[in-house]
Amino acid sequence: MLKAYSALFFIWCYSLEKQDWERLINNLIREGVLRTPKVIKAMRSVPRTNFLTKDMQSYSAADTPLPVGFGQTISAPHSLAFWLG
């Protein structure tokens, strides 16, 4: 029973993360940072959460750089959007 509940909890967390990423992409479109349809599609398909350490994954959809260990950082989503156009 507990197993089923924890599985459901993880699915729920995952869908929340997906919603957050979608919301962030929509914000970047509204702000005019993301403009090119193919770039929007690419950024939608590759959520940042899969490139973070576990302790940082809940901040994935925050539009700021985040630490990835070794004294290095991952870019803020608006920053990658700016580079890709």
Partner: peptide, 30 residues
């Protein structure tokens, strides 16, 4: 802004500084 990297299908791209790989994966999608 719109002109920054102008990636097209088929491009050969070099990235200096993979970090955790997010840029590279997103560029691959393009």
């Amino acid at each position: 802004m719109n002109e920054a990297l102008q990636l097209e299908v088929g491009h050969k791209v070099l990235e200096v500084g993979a970090g955790s790989g997010w840029h590279a994966a997103t560029i691959a999608e393009l």
